[in-house]
Simulated assay, not measured.
Amino acid sequence: MVEITEKVELIKFDEEKYLKEGESIYTQRSEVEAVVDKIAKEGYSNIFLLGIGGTEFEFAQFEYLVKKNSTVEIYSINAADANTQRPRELNKDSLVITASASGNTVEIVEAAKWIVEEGIRVVAFTKKSGPLGKVAQNVIEANVTTGQCEYSYVLQSFLIYGLLNKRGEFDKYEKFADQIKGTFKNLLEIRKAFEPRADTIAKSIYDAPYTIFTGSGSLWGETLLFTMCILEEMQWVRTRPVTSSQFFHGTLELIEPGVPVFIIKGEDEFRKQDTRVEEFCKKINAEYYVLDTQEFAFDGIDPEFRELIVPWIVTSLLTERLAAHYEVYTKHNLQYRRYYRQFEY
């Protein structure tokens, strides 16, 4: 991990509040585990992760990791697509897991209504008082005021990995859940280690005509989350997200002076694909930047659990820190939208 040799202050970030809210999130472990016990006792035939936009991308890590470590059938479905064409595998014994920070994401609320009407169980990470919270049979509301992605990830990991434990597929769940108590202190230090680089990178590429972003495996969802939900929606920055494998079948021809490549390099079996993109960029002398998660330590977590938290590292660095530095140079407020949620469409 990069060593911090001097005091680093994170711009536009309240450290004390972050740690306090992180502690609050962790105290909800027993609440989520009670839902796990209930669902496991009832049984289920398969799992659907229902999202759209950011929520769909945030769920991607869980779909990937559950498919890798469990025999349960799990599907990630776009809410708008589900409303248009109901998945054949969705049945009365399915378990649907969804999320909406606002509680009123139009497509998700619409989907939840007909899913519940058909007697299918829904677990929603949302506000209990919101439209979605009033529809879902099981609601988990984060007791925090801010929307850090990793708050959701910790709560969702208690649910999803807890269910795997009940299936006999994650016997070390208790140990994992105990160890992630230090998540927020770790992610704070990781942010500080990355802060100088975040400024350098943002300053170098914020005004590029567009930037190519590659990712793979458990980090593909985080790649889409940052490029589409942050840079495109919140910064109006043009991006080209592409998986590390598909990069070599079209996108590589778009590399030219002024078009940087940002490589999000993970630690799973897809790392060799990320490395291939990096080596190609070296070979042609392209402008490229690498975010390698192996550079960042996560104290207190056993190596066997690291694959489960690597996406949390990436989201804290990109969606939170790099985004803040883009905002400095673009001078475009991250909260300002022209169209998104501004009127009916």
Results as ranks from 00 to 15, higher is better:
9 E>Q: 13
9 E>Y: 11
9 E>C: 03
13 F>V: 01
14 D>E: 15
15 E>G: 02
16 E>W: 00
17 K>L: 15
17 K>T: 12
18 Y>T: 08
18 Y>I: 08
18 Y>G: 02
19 L>V: 02
20 K>Y: 12
20 K>M: 11
22 G>L: 12
22 G>S: 06
23 E>G: 09
24 S>K: 15
25 I>S: 09
26 Y>G: 07
26 Y>H: 12
26 Y>F: 15
28 Q>Y: 04
28 Q>K: 13
29 R>Y: 08
30 S>Q: 11
31 E>F: 08
32 V>N: 10
32 V>L: 12
33 E>K: 06
33 E>I: 03
33 E>T: 02
33 E>G: 00
33 E>A: 00
34 A>Y: 00
39 I>H: 06
40 A>K: 03
41 K>W: 01
41 K>E: 15
41 K>H: 12
41 K>S: 15
42 E>R: 15
42 E>A: 12
43 G>P: 03
46 N>T: 03
46 N>K: 08
48 F>M: 11
50 L>G: 02
51 G>C: 08
54 G>A: 13
56 E>Y: 15
58 E>N: 12
61 Q>V: 06
63 E>L: 15
63 E>W: 12
63 E>K: 14
63 E>P: 00
63 E>S: 05
64 Y>I: 05
65 L>R: 11
68 K>W: 05
70 S>C: 08
71 T>R: 14
71 T>S: 14
72 V>R: 08
74 I>F: 04
75 Y>Q: 10
75 Y>R: 14
75 Y>F: 15
75 Y>G: 00
77 I>N: 03
78 N>V: 12
80 A>T: 15
80 A>R: 13
80 A>P: 01
81 D>H: 11
83 N>Q: 03
84 T>G: 04
84 T>N: 12
84 T>Q: 03
84 T>D: 09
85 Q>V: 14
86 R>N: 00
87 P>H: 11
87 P>E: 09
87 P>W: 12
88 R>I: 14
89 E>R: 12
89 E>K: 13
93 D>P: 01
94 S>I: 07
94 S>G: 06
95 L>H: 10
95 L>V: 07
95 L>K: 08
96 V>W: 11
97 I>M: 00
99 A>V: 01
100 S>K: 09
100 S>T: 13
100 S>E: 04
101 A>I: 10
103 G>V: 07
104 N>F: 11
104 N>M: 10
104 N>H: 13
105 T>Q: 07
107 E>H: 05
107 E>C: 07
108 I>P: 07
108 I>R: 12
